[in-house]
């Protein structure tokens, strides 16, 4: 049974046990426009909550990817190397990295879907 959490900087993490799939939200992909490149870490790298682990680039903007939790990178979504626009097509299905969460208590700092919706609405104004 998986659950999705969101960060204020618009990353999501879908959690299944101690495994998490991190990507950017639909709101973030719309704000960014056509994604042309995803800068991803390597398998085996460690990420740390609050620190950037990569970036998503559109033609004239770039957005750092901020880790919602700490952990180790188990896998990266290699499909995004050749086809970064998958993020525009379906950001939730096209996660960017798969991580092993080292401190699940960090999840409690994140927003659930409803709180995140309110966060996005507030940001638009």
């Amino acid at each position: 049974m998986s659950k999705t959490y969101y960060s204020p900087s618009h990353e999501y993490i879908t959690v299944d046990g101690n495994i998490g799939y991190i990507g950017i939200s639909d709101y973030a992909q719309k704000a960014l426009g056509n994604v042309v490149y995803v800068d991803m870490p390597e398998q085996g790298d460690d990420i740390e909550a609050g620190e950037d682990f990569g970036a998503v680039e559109s033609v004239k903007a770039a957005s750092d990817l901020i880790a919602p939790v700490s952990g180790a990178v188990l896998d990266i979504n290699e499909q995004l190397i050749d086809n970064p626009r998958l993020i525009n097509e379906d950001p939730m299905a096209n996660w960017i990295i798969k991580v092993e969460i080292s401190d699940p208590s960090q999840l409690s700092e994140l927003m659930d879907e409803e709180a995140y919706k309110a966060h996005c609405e507030a940001e638009q104004h």
């Binding site: 042309v36 680039e57 033609v59 770039a62 750092d64």
Partner: peptide, 13 residues
């Protein structure tokens, strides 16, 4: 092209 890697967008990154 590939301007998103440059200083005016990436700033200190």
């Amino acid at each position: 092209t590939l301007q998103a890697r440059e200083q005016h967008i990436r700033r200190d990154k």
